[in-house]
């Protein structure tokens, strides 16, 4: 198991919600297990409210799970000492969607990129300055931007700073939470290309969260589809886009608007249920056009249907055989 970077087992995260005297549990992520191999890009898609960001934050060490374990390079994060945890934060870095609100407006670009090094107590000031210059070069910004403030930069440049800040610690895993959704198409492709080339150069592992199915397809090797806190389908990119098995995945993929769309989209009824009121049985059944009786009562489990393609749907098991 040399090439496994992250193993996630039965991960759960509940948020609590106070309603007058009642404390309500909101399951944001329930019972998720997945593996991240070294050097791969795992795409994570789903509607808003599906728990994809929560899962990203759990793996990115920004949240602690309610239950379940995360293993990083074979070691359970739970059992780590505080020093090991600090070192772990060097290995796992996070890139946020909105670079404008996640970067301190009172710091200059050089300070923003240098800050992680200071926190981790790496290098002397002179060394750090050199590394920052190298990093600026790496992300395609001129050295003259060292003294700029974040409000002086364009959206694409800001996102580059966000990436630089994550990369300066030479991490192994980068969790990218909607890194291009705030950008225009022409700038988006610049950032996607940058991420691709950085990944090759430094053998990075990416967890790429996005709601844009075209972008996820372009970036990922494997894709996990989430719905109401669970992974409902996990497969290689080509399998998932060419033969989606779960009705929700089918609906998602057929809903991508394109010129000369093939056939009519599979329209789901209504909207994603609230996390306070997750339907019994299969959580998709009230919206699913193919739902049968069993879907209302029994929760399907994630099973390997084809090689490397995992689906949690009663119908795929019946149809698959």
């Amino acid at each position: 198991m040399q090439n496994l970077l992250v193993e996630v087992e039965n991960l759960k995260k509940n948020y609590t919600h106070r309603k007058l005297y009642k404390i309500q549990e909101l399951p944001a992520v329930s019972d998720v297990s997945l593996l991240l191999r070294k050097g791969e890009t795992l795409g994570l898609v789903g509607e808003s409210g599906s728990g994809k960001s929560t899962l990203g934050q759990l793996i990115g060490q920004l949240l602690d799970p309610t239950e379940g374990i995360v293993l990083f390079e074979g070691q359970a994060i739970e059992d780590m000492t505080s020093q090991q945890r600090k070192r772990l934060k060097k290995d796992i870095q996070y890139v946020f969607q909105d670079a404008y609100s996640s970067l301190n407006p009172r710091h200059k670009v050089s300070k923003l990129i240098e800050e992680p090094l200071i926190i981790q107590k790496i290098g002397t000031p002179a060394e750090r300055k050199e590394w920052v210059n190298d990093m600026l070069n790496e992300i395609g910004l001129d050295k003259s931007y060292r003294d700029a403030y974040i409000h002086e930069l364009s959206g694409g440049q800001r996102q580059r700073i966000g990436i630089a800040r994550a990369l300066i610690l030479k991490p192994k895993l980068l969790v990218l939470d909607e890194p291009v959704s705030a950008l225009d198409v022409s700038v988006q492709s610049q950032i996607l290309n940058l991420l691709k080339s950085l990944q090759q150069k430094y053998q990075l592992t990416y967890m790429f969260i996005s709601h844009d199915l075209n972008v996820v397809h372009y970036m990922s090797d494997r894709i996990a589809v989430m719905y109401l806190g669970e992974i409902i389908e996990l497969a290689n990119v080509n399998d998932l886009y060419e033969h989606p098995l779960h009705p929700y995945t089918k609906a998602l993929i057929s809903a991508i608007p394109t010129y000369k769309r093939q056939g009519e989209p599979v329209l789901l009824k209504g909207e994603i249920a609230s996390a306070t009121d997750i339907p019994n049985g299969c959580s998709l059944h009230p919206r699913c056009p193919f739902a049968t009786e069993i879907c209302q009562f029994e929760k399907p489990v994630l099973e390997e249907v084809n090689q490397g393609q995992y689906v949690s749907c009663h119908l795929s098991r019946i149809n698959g055989q």
Partner: peptide, 10 residues
Amino acid sequence: DVTIQAQILH
């Protein structure tokens, strides 16, 4: 979201 977008466009 994409699925809702499809409904609205429809």
